[in-house]
Write a protein that binds this DNA or RNA. Structure first.
Lengths: 125, 125
DNA sequence: TTACTAACGCAACACTGTTGCATTTACAAA
DNA sequence: TTTGTAAATGCAACAGTGTTGCGTTAGTAA
């Protein structure tokens, strides 16, 4: 019987991401943990949390990978919302209510969307 | 007088990207060049071509950076179109005609957009 | 408490991208 | 055509990010 385990690292990392109002990068998480666990462990915990549907992965316009909690995922698990990336404070936030519309050419089969806007967030503007 | 120079590397790389119907990554370009020039040179040429407005940089949903020619940029230089990323053949194409619409919350100032859709391209579907 | 194995730490590695510096070379001016 | 300048290059070294293998630790079911 393969059963997942709740370890200290997993609990702390999950808490950190879910309670944060902005998406966090691996290095930001590592700094917060202050040597609580190894870098590799953080990668593996993040991987597990994504598989469990607790968090989701965001690739920012600048290529920086961030992780954010899944808030509305219990209702419907889709990440087809817009992400906003602030060019000043570098924060990435999920705008879960905003859903874009567009017309696609035929013959394209769409299974995933990734929409990121950049500019200034309410705090920085 | 600071004047740009047309070198072999620049000419070949520019040709490669502009004539390609899909966006190319640094490593794909490097393979095509077959040792014509150094990796670093490719990075620097790409940087220059972006500054000159000949090509533009795309960060795919999986974080892979690709480069594509600017076709309609002579008319209006905006990259607010959708990019399509095929999950099968890994190709990235610019859908320059598709412009998405959406409603943003107040207080956000938008200066850049990055929309990428994933799925199957016409060739793979 | 014990046994099983998920999860961990550590070392090593691959890939991507950047920087400094000496050398080469494109191109404008003589 | 030749020459001088600095744009562009090659090489070495480095930093950041992410992955893999393997021996050890520790969570949890029995």
């Amino acid at each position: 019987m393969k059963s997942p385990r709740n370890t200290t690292a997993k609990t702390v990392i999950q808490d950190l991401i879910v309670t944060s109002n902005v998406a966090l990068s691996h290095s930001e998480i590592q700094k917060s943990l202050e040597g609580l666990c190894d870098r590799v462990t953080i990668y593996r915990v993040l991987e597990r949390l994504i598989k469990e549907g607790v968090i989701h992965k965001i690739v920012n316009v600048d290529g920086v990978v961030k992780y954010a909690g899944c808030h509305s995922c219990s209702v419907k698990h889709s990440h087809n919302h817009i992400h906003f990336s602030c060019q000043k404070c570098k924060s990435v936030t999920c705008l879960e209510d905003v859903e874009p519309t567009f017309k696609m050419p035929k013959k394209y089969i769409i299974s995933e969307m990734n929409f990121t806007l950049s500019g200034l967030c309410p705090q920085c503007s």
